[in-house]
Amino acid sequence: MPEGSASLQLAVGDRVVYPNQGVCRVSAIDVKEVAGQKLTFVTMRREEDGAVVMVPEGKVLAIGVRKVASAE
């Protein structure tokens, strides 16, 4: 991610809310080559049905992904 860009610090195992998809758990953060460029992807699995969603790390905030609020 370019320096100075806002990002959401995620780790494998974090629970997040993905708008219009529901609650997901981060299952992987991997670098993949797409069209000759190396990009970091956040892979999330929906808790409702296990569907897998992959989002480029740089788009996580723009999409509206946020961490699940704690009970505290």
Score class of each variant (00 low, 15 high):
Met1Phe: 11
Met1Ile: 13
Met1Glu: 12
Met1Asn: 13
Met1Thr: 11
Met1Asp: 11
Pro2Asp: 11
Pro2Gly: 11
Glu3Lys: 07
Glu3His: 12
Glu3Phe: 07
Gly4Asp: 10
Gly4Thr: 13
Gly4Pro: 12
Gly4Cys: 05
Ser5Trp: 08
Ser5His: 12
Ser5Glu: 12
Ser5Thr: 11
Ala6Met: 10
Ala6His: 13
Ala6Arg: 07
Ala6Pro: 12
Ala6Tyr: 11
Ala6Glu: 12
Ser7Ala: 12
Ser7Met: 11
Leu8Pro: 07
Leu8Ala: 08
Leu8Phe: 09
Leu8Asn: 07
Leu8Asp: 09
Gln9Asp: 11
Leu10Thr: 01
Leu10Ala: 01
Ala11Ile: 10
Val12Lys: 02
Val12Ser: 01
Gly13Leu: 04
Gly13Ala: 01
Gly13Gln: 01
Gly13Val: 02
Gly13Arg: 00
Asp14Lys: 00
Asp14Met: 05
Asp14Gln: 03
Asp14Glu: 03
Asp14Pro: 01
Asp14Tyr: 01
Asp14Ile: 03
Arg15Phe: 11
Arg15Asp: 03
Val16Thr: 01
Val16Ile: 11
Val16Leu: 08
Val17Tyr: 15
Val17Asn: 07
Tyr18Lys: 03
Tyr18Glu: 01
Tyr18Arg: 02
Tyr18Met: 13
Tyr18Ser: 03
Pro19Arg: 06
Pro19Asn: 06
Pro19Met: 06
Pro19His: 06
Pro19Asp: 07
Pro19Gln: 06
Pro19Ala: 07
Asn20His: 10
Asn20Ser: 12
Asn20Cys: 02
Asn20Leu: 09
Asn20Gly: 15
Gln21Ser: 08
Gln21Lys: 14
Gly22Asn: 03
Gly22Tyr: 05
Val23Gly: 02
Val23Asp: 02
Val23Thr: 08
Val23Ile: 14
Val23Leu: 13
Val23Phe: 14
Cys24Met: 14
Cys24Asn: 00
Cys24Leu: 11
Arg25Asp: 02
Arg25Leu: 13
Arg25Lys: 09
Val26Leu: 02
Val26His: 00
Val26Asp: 00
Ser27Ile: 14
Ser27Glu: 15
Ser27Gln: 11
Ser27Lys: 06
Ser27Leu: 11
Ala28Cys: 01
Ala28Gly: 08
Ala28Thr: 05
Ile29Ser: 00
Ile29Gln: 01
Ile29Pro: 00
Asp30Gly: 14
Asp30Met: 10
Asp30Pro: 01
Asp30Lys: 08
Val31Ile: 10
Val31Tyr: 08
Val31Phe: 07
Lys32Ile: 15
Lys32Tyr: 14
Lys32Cys: 03
Lys32Arg: 13
Lys32Glu: 06
Glu33His: 08
Glu33Cys: 05
Glu33Lys: 06
Val34Gln: 05
Val34Thr: 06
Val34Tyr: 08
Val34Ala: 04
Ala35Pro: 02
Ala35Met: 10
Ala35His: 13
Gly36Tyr: 02
Gly36Ala: 02
Gly36Pro: 00
Gly36Phe: 03
Gln37Asn: 09
Gln37Glu: 12
Gln37Arg: 09
Gln37Cys: 01
Lys38Asp: 04
Lys38Ala: 07
Lys38Tyr: 12
Lys38Ile: 09
Lys38Leu: 13
Lys38Pro: 07
Leu39Met: 13
Leu39Cys: 00
Leu39Pro: 01
Thr40Met: 08
Thr40Trp: 09
Thr40Val: 13
Phe41Trp: 14
Phe41Met: 14
Val42Glu: 00
Val42Arg: 00
Val42Ala: 01
Val42His: 00
Thr43Cys: 01
Thr43Tyr: 13
Met44Arg: 00
Met44Asn: 00
Met44Ile: 04
Met44Gly: 00
Met44Thr: 00
Met44Ala: 01
Arg45Ile: 15
Arg45Val: 15
Arg45Met: 14
Arg45Phe: 10
Arg46Gln: 02
Arg46Met: 04
Arg46Phe: 09
Arg46Leu: 03
Glu47Ile: 06
Glu47Pro: 01
Glu47Leu: 08
Glu47Trp: 03
Glu48Thr: 13
Glu48Pro: 04
Glu48Asp: 10
Glu48Lys: 13
Glu48Ser: 14
Glu48Asn: 10
Glu48Met: 10
Glu48Gln: 11
Gly50Asn: 08
Gly50Trp: 05
Gly50Ile: 03
Gly50His: 04
Ala51Gly: 11
Ala51Val: 13
Ala51Leu: 11
Ala51Ile: 09
Val52Ile: 12
Val52Met: 11
Val53Ser: 05
Val53Gln: 04
Met54Glu: 12
Met54Gly: 02
Met54Trp: 06
Met54Tyr: 10
Val55Ala: 07
Val55Met: 10
Val55Lys: 02
Pro56Gly: 05
Pro56Ala: 07
Pro56Phe: 07
Pro56His: 06
Pro56Gln: 07
Glu57Thr: 06
Glu57Phe: 14
Glu57Ala: 11
Glu57His: 08
Gly58Met: 10
Gly58Thr: 14
Lys59Ala: 13
Lys59Asp: 15
Val60Ala: 14
Val60Thr: 04
Val60Lys: 02
Val60Tyr: 07
Val60Met: 15
Leu61Ile: 11
Leu61Val: 11
Leu61Lys: 10
Leu61Tyr: 12
Leu61Cys: 04
Ala62Lys: 07
Ala62Thr: 08
Ala62Glu: 15
Ala62Pro: 04
Ala62Asp: 10
Ala62Ile: 11
Ala62Val: 09
Ala62Gln: 09
Ile63Pro: 05
Ile63Ser: 13
Ile63Leu: 15
Ile63Met: 14
Gly64Ser: 05
Gly64Trp: 10
Gly64Gln: 05
Gly64Phe: 07
Val65Pro: 03
Val65Arg: 02
Val65Gly: 05
Arg66Val: 15
Arg66Ala: 09
Arg66Glu: 14
Arg66Lys: 15
Arg66Cys: 14
Lys67Cys: 15
Lys67Trp: 10
Lys67Ser: 05
Val68Met: 07
Val68Asp: 07
Val68His: 07
Val68Ile: 14
Val68Ala: 07
Val68Phe: 07
Ala69Cys: 15
Ala69Arg: 05
Ala69Val: 13
Ala69Tyr: 11
Ala69Pro: 11
Ser70Asn: 11
Ser70Met: 11
Ser70Ala: 12
Ser70Cys: 15
Ser70Arg: 07
Ala71Gly: 13
Ala71Thr: 12
Ala71Val: 12
Ala71Lys: 10
Glu72Gln: 11
Glu72Ala: 11
Glu72Phe: 10
Glu72Lys: 09
